[in-house]
């Protein structure tokens, strides 16, 4: 077994193990950093495969993404510190079955599939070829991705902004009641707490 094989085995094991830990840790912050570890291990495998730009790009993309994720965890989620046990799942058995089936089906494709043995040339410069492709033949694809990202940014700001042209984003919305039709858990100065007026929204 060569050195590269050994590193691959270790990184593959780390990627799968930490990917699995994402869904069984008690803390959501920990979950997002387990996911980051999984991504970093995959990035190292990509480096071993010779994709020197993609592997490193994955590191910084995912570091920022998971940082944002952890930030949101602390903001919105219950139990970000993992001090209590946490299990928030539905259709657990079906989901586990689907995951196992997907794994075996895809592995069967990998094992029994007949892929052409055409490794990348050893003198190939992956960074140069990728750059020439991105701003050459596939410029339309690349720029479409860029425009889509811009559209996402605009849409996301519009969706998450507090203010709209006709008032607050949450105007007319009402927190769910503690029991059906009852008072909401969070009242503040919302309309639900005023008692006399009851609005129907359909």
């Amino acid at each position: 077994m060569s050195f590269v094989d050994l590193i691959f085995l270790i990184c593959g094991a780390i990627a799968i193990f930490s990917g699995w830990r994402v869904f069984c840790t008690d803390s959501m912050v920990r979950a997002s950093f387990f996911l980051l570890i999984s991504f970093i291990a995959v990035g190292v495998i990509m480096l071993l495969l010779g994709a020197v730009y993609l592997g490193v790009a994955l590191f910084f993309m995912m570091a920022v993404e998971m940082m944002v994720m952890a930030l949101f965890m602390v903001m919105f989620m219950m139990n970000p510190a993992g001090l209590n046990p946490m299990k928030m799942v539905h259709q657990d058995k079906f989901a586990a079955l689907a995951g196992v089936v997907a794994f075996f089906a895809l592995s069967a494709v990998a094992v029994f599939g007949d892929f052409p043995d055409q490794p990348r040339p050893s003198d190939l410069d992956p960074v140069v070829t990728l750059g020439k492709e991105l701003l050459g033949d596939s410029m339309l694809v690349f720029e479409s991705a860029g425009v889509t990202l811009l559209a996402t940014m605009i849409g996301v700001v519009a969706m998450s902004s507090h203010r709209g042209r006709y008032g607050d984003a949450n105007a007319g919305s009402r927190p769910p009641g503690l029991e059906p039709g009852g008072m909401p858990a969070f009242s503040g100065d919302q309309e639900g707490s005023s008692g006399g007026h009851h609005h129907h929204h359909h």
Binding site: V56, A63, V64
Partner: peptide, 16 residues
């Protein structure tokens, strides 16, 4: 060959 990108990855990882 991608030293600048790796440096760019170290900064967000340090933030993490």
């Amino acid at each position: 060959t991608t030293g600048i990108v790796l440096w760019g990855a170290l900064e967000p990882l340090a933030t993490v």
